[in-house]
Design a protein around this nucleic acid. Structure first.
Length: 490
RNA sequence: GAGCCGUUAGCUCAGCUGGUAGAGCAUCUGACUUUUAAUCAGGUGGUCACAGGUUCGAUCCCUGUACGGCUCACCA
């Protein structure tokens, strides 16, 4: 049912009046010569005397309008900012001025005129022609407080973007972050590729997938939870450096740093191990921060974060020793389990030592890692695609990095031994059979690829949404995703 | 999934001990040819999220539902 109110009815009446005057309220094109910020830059020296040489044409949305009888001031907003226009009846003509008076805040109009400076010093366009480009029939939020309600801001991002310039700035920065990373990777001879979103077998991470169905093939398909296994197939195929900004989908809960669909950068680098990837990671991110902010020190939620390499490196076991009173090295699995349960850690009882260690890390360490920190050498049980450490087969060459208590990225020396990989898959498959919804299926085709031989390879995944949160000082992932997932309104 | 909080005019928000609702902005009418939260005068605008219950009477108290926020759980 069509939503309506007095304000909208009044605007529709104005729309009809404009049509009856023979004017198309939705014309097909317009040719502005300038942007608002371009004018503010280019005409900085202009004074109070209008000079015909300073003629411009702009287009934008009316954000404020102050009518004064036979003259009027308004601010027009375009994608670059705002500028004031000054419209006088004697300059635009009586008929045109009458139509102009039917314009509302929110309408998109074009204006031609001369740039000058008002008595109060504001650079302004003295308009001699104004033209309706699109009539707005739904009123914008109030100018002073803007749009505050989070629900409306997320559901009607368009209104949020119109009213809140700082929101727009966040999304411009998001694009700049992606662009900066892309530029650096391209410079280092990485190839950007595209791999399937619809996958017959999901893998590369442990998460519940979204399931769909292909009618013609008559088979279920899964929206990818990661693209890892496809990128590594490409390494097998001979692309030595590949990456993809991948929209991934995980059918899990939503909170301040989880959205069901999110963007991950994954990259793979042949002949590298995880230590080389560590170096690449800190440089990639530090340079991105530097490009965006001109420095590698920024403030996130009132805490200073220093991205200057090298970042702190500490093993997972060491971090647990440091941040809790557990020493996994000196305890048996059973002792560790007992102590953890006594400390209030919820465990089912069938966890392996590695799983308990990972759990202890999550509970006692993760939230305390404020400055960029590499946690490395993970238990093998929670890392089915990472290569074992030569000197300790219970650990793998894997790291994650944490900033402001958030996991931002994950990397390892990729497991390229097809026999070992098959065994790890089998363990996962048995977990799946035991009811672990996040274990995954055996990907025979991926194993076949490994059997052809994959070079030693380092891989990395970076959560682009979380990185953007950090670099734009946003508390919630919903504030760095244009259209975050929401329940239906009705 | 759990706990807490919220939902009142287009927007931002008040609303006391239960007595059928207010402000600012926006909007409308009039005045105003350098204003900028323009100003001045006068108006319009409400399913108090939804459904029940208690009560003589409910925006207010109770129950349920929907949506949202925060926290927790889940998410290697």
């Amino acid at each position: 049912m069509e939503e309506t109110n007095d304000l909208m009815r009044q605007r529709k009446e104005k729309l009809n009046e404009i049509r009856e005057a023979g004017i198309d309220p939705y014309p097909h094109q317009y040719a502005p010569t300038h942007t608002t910020s371009g004018i503010l830059d280019a005409f900085e020296d202009v004074d109070e005397t209008p000079d015909e040489t300073n003629r411009v044409t702009i287009a934008g949305r009316i954000m404020t309008k102050r009518d004064h009888g036979k003259s009027s001031f308004a601010h027009l907003q375009d994608s670059t900012g705002q500028i004031q226009i000054y419209v006088r009846r004697d300059d635009v003509g009586t008929d045109s001025y009458k139509i102009y008076r039917r314009f509302d805040v929110g309408d998109i109009i074009g204006a031609s005129g001369i740039v000058f400076r008002t008595r109060t010093g504001e650079l302004t366009i003295l308009a001699d022609a104004v033209e309706l480009l699109s009539k707005s029939i739904r009123p914008l939020p109030e100018k002073w407080h803007g749009l505050q309600d989070k629900q409306t801001r997320y559901r009607q991002r368009y209104a949020d973007l119109i009213m809140n310039p700082e929101v727009k700035e966040v999304f411009v920065m998001r694009t700049q972050i992606v662009q900066a990373i892309r530029d650096m990777l391209n410079e280092q001879n990485f190839i950007e590729v595209e791999t399937p979103v619809l996958q017959p077998i999901y893998g590369g991470a442990s998460a519940r997938p979204f399931t769909t169905y292909h009618n013609t093939l008559d088979q279920p398909l899964y929206l990818r939870i990661a693209n890892e296994l496809y990128l590594k197939r490409l390494i097998v195929g001979g692309f030595d450096r590949v990456y993809e900004f991948s929209r991934d989908f995980r059918n899990e809960g939503m909170d301040r740093d989880h959205n069901p669909e999110f963007t991950m950068l994954e990259l793979y680098l042949a002949y590298a191990d995880y230590l080389e990837v560590m170096e690449l990671t800190e440089n990639l991110i530090a340079q991105t921060v530097e490009k965006l902010h001109g420095t590698t020190k920024i403030t996130y939620q009132d805490q200073e974060i220093d991205f200057t390499p090298p970042w702190r490196r500490i093993t997972m076991i060491e971090s647990i020793q440091e941040y809790s009173d557990f020493d996994p090295d000196s305890l048996s699995t059973h002792e560790l389990y007992t102590k953890a349960v006594n400390a209030g850690v919820e465990l089912a009882g069938d966890e392996s030592k590695g799983e308990i260690i990972a759990e202890l890390f999550d509970i006692f360490v993760e939230s305390k890692l404020i400055q960029p920190t590499f946690i490395y050498d993970y238990p093998i049980e929670v890392s089915p695609f990472a290569k074992k450490k030569p000197e300790n087969p219970e650990l793998v060459e894997r790291f994650e990095f944490f900033i402001s208590g958030m996991e931002v990225g994950n990397a390892f020396s990729e497991l390229n031994d097809p026999i070992d990989q098959r065994q790890r898959f089998m363990e996962q498959a048995s977990n799946l059979a035991k009811g672990d919804e996040e274990a995954f299926m055996v990907d025979e085709d991926y194993l076949r690829a490994l059997e052809y031989g994959m070079p030693p390879t380092g891989g990395l995944g970076i959560g682009i949404d979380r990185l953007t949160m950090l670099l734009t000082d946003q508390y919630s992932i919903r504030d760095v995703i244009l259209f975050p997932q929401m329940r239906p309104e009705n």
